[in-house]
Design a protein around this nucleic acid. Sequence first.
DNA 1: AGCAGCTACTTGAAAGCTCAACAACCCGAT
DNA 2: ATCGGGTTGTTGAGCTTTCAAGTAGCTGCT
Lengths: 172, 172
Amino acid sequence: MNDTRWLNPEEEHTWRAYLHAHRLLLDAIDAQLRRDSGMPHAYYEILVRLSETPGRVLRMSVLAEGTRVSASRLSHAIARLEERGWVRREDCPTDKRGQLAVLTDEGFAALAAAAPGHVEAVRGALFDALDPEQVRWLGAVSQTLADHLGATGGRVGPQEPNGTAGAPVRES
Amino acid sequence: MNDTRWLNPEEEHTWRAYLHAHRLLLDAIDAQLRRDSGMPHAYYEILVRLSETPGRVLRMSVLAEGTRVSASRLSHAIARLEERGWVRREDCPTDKRGQLAVLTDEGFAALAAAAPGHVEAVRGALFDALDPEQVRWLGAVSQTLADHLGATGGRVGPQEPNGTAGAPVRES
DNA sequence: AGCAGCTACTTGAAAGCTCAACAACCCGAT
DNA sequence: ATCGGGTTGTTGAGCTTTCAAGTAGCTGCT
């Protein structure tokens, strides 16, 4: 009749704690970026991606893959970033279907301005709360999970060993 | 000039892996619920909360606190759940400002119908990928984080040791 | 060459979320 | 009693995300 494999108490607790912690964490990060830099975290991630790339250009499809967002969402997002002058679209020379998203100097400046506050927020919300062993485990578990979901349930296939966000390319 | 405490390589990697994993995980969970049960995960969490309460009633403020959602968002969400007939509003007898959200039988049925698929999704996306030690660490780290953010940066004050979601009250 | 089927990206509408403003009410102090 | 300040919940506007088409171009097959 009912062959659902319900969660056992430990799993249940873990899942709820995870949801709880994650919501608080991401809400804090997103709120900080919106408040101090006028951009949602999703946009920050896009800008970071672009900033790390030689020429600060990326094809839409690659960018979508890299930031794990749907094509549609990226298209809308880039449209808005374009309105702000932070990103510019160009035609892809090798594939007439393609579009390139180019980070403008204004976009890079906006990112550079946002980065310190954002990094402080991440540090304050996440790393300040965890001891080194916890950080290692969080990294390991996240990696395992990302591999699992990337290969199995997730959006797509071949995974780069990579996530998003942080600081823009440090110009060193 | 620049005294930002940037993330070190391990932190950077951990943060990106975390974002990556989390996005894949929550997207998968949310997509499953939308597809199979026509409700976003946020609504599921609200219904779960209500289902676990004696009488399946909760004051808006308590529900907002419990699901870690802004008052505004909850108000909108309840409005939509009400349109579907899954929740009903009632006046709070002891405080004329207050409103009670009551889970209807239809709402409970919808939750009960959604739960098995959702739990399978959580299991498949999360617990199937982790070994017991990783689950323990994930729980511990999440709990630490939730406490930290609940007390410090998060939305509010006195924390219940609790998150959200899972199965509705098992009728045992 | 031409065509079927796939990939890349966009679009518009509907749904959800955030933010700021607001109405109604409670409570404590005067 | 009433007034000030805090709390509870709602609303509407604007923005973001999702979903379902839709357009255009590539690719391999005949």
